[in-house]
Design a protein around this nucleic acid. Sequence first.
DNA 1: CTCCTGTCCTGCCGGC
DNA 2: TGCCGGCAGGACAGGA
Length: 282
Amino acid sequence: MPELPEVETVIRGLTPALKGEEIANVQLRRKSLRIPFPPNLKQNLEGQKILHLTRRAKYILIHLMDGNILVIHLGMSGRMTVISAGENYTLQKHDHFIMSMKNGTRVIYNDPRRFGMIFLVSQDNLQSHKVFHHLGPEPLGNEFSALVLAARLRNKKVSIKQALLDQRVVVGVGNIYASEALYLAGINPTKRAELIKGERCERLVKSIRDVLNRAIKAGGSTLKDYRHADGELGYFQHSFTVYDKEGETCSKCRKAGSAARPCIRKIVQSGRSTYYCAKTQK
DNA sequence: CTCCTGTCCTGCCGGC
DNA sequence: TGCCGGCAGGACAGGA
């Protein structure tokens, strides 16, 4: 499920609950998610103090006092829930990982499809770790620019939509925001990636940033403290402009008064749905 | 190198 | 109503 904005919203929700707190107990309710839990995960976490939380790509990084980082990826269906001290909570199906803090706060990781990952890596080995070493630039960071994107798209024969999903090109963009960003930039998703340069590339960079920033903002403003009444973090009502809107008329076409002709189409690219406006995306 | 396919897993929805 | 196929917001390995 979650792409960069959702992960970011989860982190903002977890931070006040976890920052500075000590982990008292860890419960693993199965042996593995997508990959096995590391053998000593429980022992390594219990007694540790949490310094702070950050994000890299779609990974949640929980920095611990001993120099290790607890890495959590939500996969397609992972969710985090915060339960305050003294609050009642009955464990649900697919609650796989539970971390209880010394002050009584609990954090629950639930993931029906189990495509998520939880593991530990030392601060020093983070960059070189298998899942991190190949990652491209953060789209909201200073290192991301039209020149950088163009360089990474060079010689890429795949479609620009597929390229945006490639975490070596840019991180954090998933299937929804790829469609959304291309719509905003007015770029046809089937276009060969290597053809996107110059002014179009500028527009794409700006669109990716816009779409992600707006989604993060929506996450913050529609949730009180990034948290539902039931403690669940990071999932918010957010209306997309083209995603899942096949057969509807996009806002640009509506504004242009094109007699409300349906312009949004759905296609499948390397097995994944793409939505776009057949009229405005060239 | 790049590209493409298959795979992991459960839940849900639409069609019959 | 029940069953079944297809699809779902991610990312990896392996082979061409």
